[in-house]
């Protein structure tokens, strides 16, 4: 692992067999996860598959001599952004799923066609492009990855860096604005609430369920606050009894008392 992390500026043309093997395994896993992502029906499953892809990619960054980027991918991208996705899925409906039927005619066929076309074109172009082997690094980059990145960000790319900062601030403010719910009326104070209660005539809150219960038998229906009974409160296997019926005290049948003649 460490030699992977350290494999950077002085990278050579060919990697070791271990790196190759890892690459092929990760490649298949990521492609499979991506395909699964677009084929599963539930949104949560999609998010999980995307997480798998991102983790594979993080590993690949590490293999290519970008350890900083690998960790940022895991921490920020997978850890923060994807979790954000999962929060929204939870809020919107965890069980919401797409139907399989396509509503737009010919969309799937056209999408497939476009995809194959773009794939072929891109493969052709990179085939023709001069993508050479991994280069030997120059002397200036003979420091470790983090220092090199820092040097680039804060010198050559400092302006984009500042702008990106502004972008982040804007995004945060924007999110707050979008999620904000405007009050249409002023917030009622305690005085307003008390006045409302007075006017409505019901000063005390409604009693909690069970306060007015006279009985707690299972076959006796519960009382609603206005005094009516609720049929739903009794199990259907039992026969509900009239709630107003006074239950006779339950006494065991006692034998008749032995009345002595002597008393009469």
């Amino acid at each position: 692992m460490s030699h992977i992390l350290a494999a950077t500026p002085s990278g050579t043309n060919t990697d070791s067999i271990a790196v190759e093997t890892v690459f092929w395994i990760l490649a298949f896993i990521s492609v499979g996860a991506a395909l699964a992502m677009i084929l599963v029906r539930r949104a949560v499953h999609c998010a999980i598959m995307l997480a798998v892809v991102m983790l594979c990619l993080a590993t690949m960054y590490a293999m290519q001599g970008a350890p900083f980027l690998a960790f940022v991918q895991i921490i920020v991208y997978t850890g923060a952004v994807l979790m954000l996705f999962l929060f929204v899925v939870m809020l919107i409906g965890i069980s919401s799923s797409d139907s399989v039927v396509e509503t737009i005619k010919g969309q799937r066929a056209a999408a497939g066609l476009a995809a194959i076309g773009l794939f072929l074109i891109l493969i052709l172009s990179i085939g023709h492009a001069a993508i050479g082997p991994a280069a030997r690094t120059t002397a200036a980059n003979n420091v470790d990855n983090l220092t090199g990145l820092a040097r680039l960000i804060f010198t050559t790319y400092v302006f984009p860096f500042e702008v990106t900062g502004a972008l982040l601030i804007t995004a945060a403010v924007g999110a707050m604005v979008l999620a904000h719910r405007e009050r249409t009326a002023p917030k009622p104070t305690q005085r307003d609430l008390a006045a409302r209660r007075l006017v409505s005539g019901q000063l005390a809150p409604d009693p909690a369920p069970g306060v007015y219960a006279l009985h707690d038998a299972a076959d006796r229906p519960a009382l609603l606050p206005d005094g009516s009974t609720s049929e739903l409160s009794v199990s259907q296997t039992l026969a509900p009894r009239d709630p107003n019926e006074e239950t006779p005290p339950v006494r065991p049948e006692l034998p008749a008392p032995a009345v002595t003649e002597a008393e009469s």
């Binding site: 970008a66 996705f85 030997r136 090199g148 984009p160 972008l167 982040l168 995004a171």
Partner: peptide, 28 residues
């Protein structure tokens, strides 16, 4: 890696930042 300098990584870094901001606003 092909060019031997770190400019590509810087760009990838910025892409990540922008993607994060975009996700925030989009989900809102």
């Amino acid at each position: 890696r092909m060019h031997g300098n770190l400019d590509g990584q810087v760009i990838a870094f910025f892409v990540m930042v922008v993607a994060a901001a975009e996700v925030v606003v989009g989900l809102a």
